[in-house]
Write a protein that binds this DNA or RNA. Sequence first.
DNA 1: AGTTCGATCGCCT
DNA 2: GGCGATCGAACTG
Length: 173
Amino acid sequence: LRLPKPLPRSFYARPTVEVARDLLGKIVSLGEASGRITEVEAYLGVGDEAAHSARGITDRTRVLFGPPGHAYIYLIYGMYDCLNFVTESDGIAGGVLIRAIEPIAGINRSADGPGKLTLALGITRAQNGADLTCGPITVHRDPRAKPFKIEVSKRIGITKSADLPLRFLIGRE
DNA sequence: AGTTCGATCGCCT
DNA sequence: GGCGATCGAACTG
């Protein structure tokens, strides 16, 4: 599968929910490994108590407030790295958590969870802040993309702002 | 400086 | 369905 050029920064420089929905069906790639995004969650900058950015800029959340089209990668529960794509314009926080991918190439384990897909792709927080328009982590349109339905639900595993409909998945069947 | 607890996963019952 | 692993960020005092 030959991948088109990485998505441009303008793709990410939009409202977070819009970017989240549009990321479904796109392809994430790192080196030889790649997969199709099937599940995401939006984390908003303001009024979203579940977002890491809710308390303002800290050493950890700096990239969430920075320019769009970068990777925000953090350690969760002391053992897993989670991958997010930074959205909105520079200075405004927002990110999309990638929760599941469907393996395409170079993946030898399941990738149906935020901690599992980073292991599958070989992504760690050493790549925090990486520019998605340059690589090594890149995102692409799927040249063989077909239409699909989008399902919406509450986000998983959070306690604050827990009822917002900010989880998006490619519909079954 | 000490405590709490999380955007998870896999193994156990 | 429940829980332990494992650690750093953020909050308490």
